[in-house]
Amino acid sequence: MAKNQRFEKIYSQGTMSVTEIWVDKETGINYLYHASGYSGGLTPLLDREGKPVISSIVNS
């Protein structure tokens, strides 16, 4: 595995039907990933106003 990965998983729920939230460490944008069986999808996580949820970026 690479030392410096761009995305970090911050939330995970489920085993057969999985829901996860990933954060892009360069932009801070949060992504929602959902998979069930042989299908899955990834989309930016949006707030009530339809804007992407952005986390503060911490350089570590």
Rank of each mutant, 00 (worst) to 15 (best):
E26K: 10
I29T: 11
E49K: 10
I10G: 03
L46S: 02
V18Q: 13
L45S: 01
K51H: 07
T27C: 04
G50H: 05
G41H: 11
M16L: 14
E49W: 04
T15G: 10
L32V: 09
V53L: 12
T43H: 06
T27Y: 07
M16Y: 13
K51V: 08
L46R: 08
M16G: 09
S36T: 13
E49C: 00
T15V: 06
T19G: 04
G37R: 02
K9R: 13
S60C: 03
S36N: 15
D47P: 00
S17R: 14
P52V: 08
K51D: 04
K9D: 01
N4F: 13
I21E: 10
E8S: 13
T27V: 08
P44V: 13
K9V: 14
G28E: 05
R6N: 11
I57F: 05
T43F: 07
D47R: 03
Y31I: 10
R6F: 07
K9G: 01
L46N: 01
K9L: 15
L45D: 01
G14T: 06
I54Q: 09
P44S: 08
S36C: 15
K51S: 02
Y11D: 10
I57P: 01
V53R: 01
M1T: 05
P52S: 01
N4E: 12
E20F: 05
T27P: 05
Q5L: 07
V58Q: 00
D47E: 06
E26P: 03
L32P: 02
I57K: 11
M1D: 05
Y11P: 00
E20T: 06
S56E: 15
G14E: 09
V23K: 09
L42R: 04
H34F: 15
S36I: 14
V18A: 06
I57E: 00
T15A: 11
S12Y: 03
